[in-house]
Amino acid sequence: MSPRHHPSEDRLLSYAAGTGTPGADLVIAAHVGACRQCRDAVALAEAVGGALLDALPPAPMSDDALALALARIERPANAPAPKRAPAEPDWIEVPEPVLHAARRKRRWAAPGVWVAPIGRGPGGARSYLLRVGAGMSVPRHTHRGAELVCVLKGAFSDRGGLYEPGDFSESDESVEHMPTVTPEGECVCLICADGALVPRDWVGRFFQPFVRI
């Protein structure tokens, strides 16, 4: 089934132009991998990038540039495709660093909850995986800056919407919510957040020091 919640056109455009942040690119890449419609949007934007590139006034290369390049090429070797780590069962396809974090960085943060840090981007934005058990809620919270989420496995409901594998969600400080995992099974999400969550109730305030997201 194809995802029903998508990134904004300008997120897709930054991704295609290569001007997004590393953390945002990772979340968008996961969504785009699962979403034909957004793959097409990215392909269109890349074609626009190609046409713009082609129309640029050429900047002269140094005199020996072509000779240097010719000295460096050989007959193209049909290099085998790079080996990919086997995917996680029941997950949508994700980029390599995500799988790596999932296997080697998991830490149980609270009953039913694990977190796997992936890395930090410019301005301290944090990328991580979050697993929440069936039927559980993330304590009511808001955000500092933007938070991008892509569902990798399972589903959660939030503000009247249902988010299933491949679905994308973006929130910011104007959003206060309490996403709840559906009762059918655990939910794993890839998240990039500019800042830490801001808990809005005592449960969250109690848990945050342990979960550290």
Partner: peptide, 9 residues
């Protein structure tokens, strides 16, 4: 993809 698109990426 067009050549320019591929090279752009």
């Amino acid at each position: 993809a067009a050549a320019s698109t591929w090279i752009f990426t």
